[in-house]
Amino acid sequence: MAQPLNYLVETPSQTAGPYVHIGLAPGAAGFRLFDKELGQTIAAEDVPGERITVSGRVLDATGAPVKDVLIEVWQADANGIYPHPEDPRVADCAPGFRGWGRVITNFETGDWSFQTIKPGPVPQRHGGPQAPHISLWLVARGINIGLNTRMYFPEDADMHASDPILRSIEQRHRVATLVAERTGPGHYRFDIRLQGDAETVFIDI
């Protein structure tokens, strides 16, 4: 018998349930408790970059909107820099840029939208850029462990061919599930399908 490795085991996930807003966005749940709610501003107004609005819905297997979903966004600034101490260029990250936010749906329709700046390209592991993208994490009632995916931009199609994540999708027609639709200047539409024929590619990050 070998020595035991003695690693700890990750705490198991449980669904965030229907009332996730109480904890993560109490204003949306219907009451005010904290002076500052977290995640309301991804990029302050004076942060340089192209201002964009992303709208969409999360749809279940039947095509019905998931009205109680909560989405967290994580992205780099317009120069592809993350506001995180391990980004070697963090000192040059745009002041006032948080890069992270929480997206709340309209509880009656399931529609959501958020405003931010378009991220710049982030380096790949060993050089060269990844195509600009926004990382998303979804939790809701019925989702037993948070789902990770990415949103890419249609105007960067030439970079998509060399993006390491998009390249690794075997069924090439599924790449389109990660690319938003441009609906107007600075406006994008990104629907996420949890299951079914056009199921969004979810990522084991």
Partner: peptide
């Protein structure tokens, strides 16, 4: 509720990047 809200396809395996 997990039945219509669970992906059927395998999760995409990636090597972690800065993101």
């Amino acid at each position: 509720t997990s039945v219509p809200r669970s992906p059927n396809q395998a999760l995409l395996t990636i090597q972690q990047t800065a993101s």
